[in-house]
Amino acid sequence: MQVNESSKEFKPCIVAFCCNWCSYAGADLAGSNRLSYPADVKIIRVPCSCRVNPLFILRAFQRGADGVILCGCHPGDCHYTTGNYYARRRMTMLFSMLDYLGIEKERTRVEWVSAAEGAKFAATMNDFISTVQSLGENRKLRDLRCKE
């Protein structure tokens, strides 16, 4: 495939869902510390990682996202006590289903980033992007009606 040859030029579209209390604050801290990561990541703020419906992730893939990452508070630290546990379980189910459908597991990820972990946020994003870049464009789930 041509995509792999030109993977250096390939700019993936990455959607990051961040919980308001930990990961979004972690992303802000990465910004305050000027810790750089590629502009391919676009963050959507949600109150808690458990607010993320698996359908949102499927929707992102259908609309042309190449990778989706969900960030929440560390286990035990959830602002809402147990939200991240629900998120973790739901995503485990979703990811194994996506894997079964032939969507590379590496395109999806759940990470715990606290409000104090700006460096971890940036590092996680850098790592995730390079992983998605090496996989190339997401073609399998893309809904052709959505793209010209």
């Binding site: 579209c13 959607v15 959507i44 109150p47 992102a60 609309r63």
Partner: peptide, 19 residues
């Protein structure tokens, strides 16, 4: 549904980002 972060609101953000 959650007021302020409804399914449609988040979906519309996803759509706008992936456009």
């Amino acid at each position: 549904d959650l007021k302020g972060f409804s399914n449609r609101q988040i979906m519309s953000e996803v759509d706008a980002i992936c456009k």
